[in-house]
Simulated assay, not measured.
Amino acid sequence: MTVAVKTGLWQLDATRSTVAIKHRTMWGLVTVKGVFGEVAGQGEVQPDGSASGTVTLAAASLDTKNTKRDTHLHGPDFFDAERHPTVVFAVHDAALRQDDTVAISGELTVRGVSRPQSATATVTESDADAVTLTTQFTVDRNQFGLSLNQLGMMGGLTTVTSTLRFTRASA
């Protein structure tokens, strides 16, 4: 597929986008999976083909299908959603490569702590008015103060997987 993304403003289609996490717990024996129910975003493609924008997640919308665990994850030990209601990935530069992948560099902010983050996305669909990107990358939760680790049960990295559908913004 040869991708040609038009310049201008793009809006995330939240109904056709997902952001999920996966983390191994219990000394690597159990995998906890969750999906953020509220995702928003926008971007701008420049005439030179580079792009920038943001993807914002509502921290309290993380759903792991376990109410007790979700309440704990939304609370002060982890996301502290009351004081830090959003998780934001600010994309400073996204450049389309010839192999229909996108090199992304930006800054991830969780719990008010910002760290550089990079990823490679794959363009899975593209037409004149919409583009879909998929990516998977890892995050060290300790860098964001998400370090509760009773008895060494939750070490390691968290995997973030996303499918993001952007549509051309109306003028």
Score class of each variant (00 low, 15 high):
T163P: 04
T159K: 08
V102R: 00
T101R: 00
V139H: 12
T101S: 03
Q117A: 13
Q143F: 11
R141M: 05
Q143P: 15
Q117F: 04
D100W: 13
T132C: 06
I104H: 00
T101K: 01
A119L: 08
E107K: 13
T135M: 11
V160N: 07
T132N: 01
A121N: 02
G152S: 09
A94I: 01
T132A: 07
S118L: 08
F137Y: 02
Q98G: 14
R168F: 07
S162R: 06
Q150G: 14
T161H: 12
S105W: 07
V139R: 10
L108V: 02
A121F: 14
V91M: 05
I104P: 02
Q98M: 15
T109I: 09
A103M: 10
D93V: 09
R97K: 12
S170A: 15
L133V: 00
S170K: 13
S118G: 11
D99E: 05
A119Y: 04
G152R: 14
A128F: 10
D140R: 06
V102Y: 04
R165N: 06
G112N: 03
T134E: 04
L133W: 03
T138P: 11
S170E: 10
A128D: 01
R111T: 00
A90F: 12
A121T: 02
T124V: 00
V91S: 04
M154G: 08
T134N: 07
Q98S: 14
S162I: 09
A130V: 08
D127K: 06
V123M: 03
R115S: 11
R141S: 05
A130N: 01
V123T: 04
A119K: 01
S114F: 04
G112M: 08
E125M: 07
E107R: 10
T135G: 10
R111P: 11
L96V: 04
T124L: 01
G145A: 10
Q136I: 00
A90W: 10
Q98D: 12
S105G: 13
G112R: 06
V110W: 03
T132W: 11
Q98K: 14
D100N: 14
Q98W: 14
Q117M: 09
T159N: 06
A128H: 09
E107H: 10
R141V: 05
T163V: 01
T109G: 06
R115Q: 09
T163G: 01
T158M: 00
S118F: 08
T134Q: 09
G156T: 07
T132G: 01
N142I: 15
Q143T: 12
Q150A: 12
L151V: 13
Q98I: 15
R115E: 06
S170F: 08
G145V: 01
T167M: 08
L164M: 02
L148E: 11
D140H: 11
L164D: 00
L108W: 00
Q117L: 03
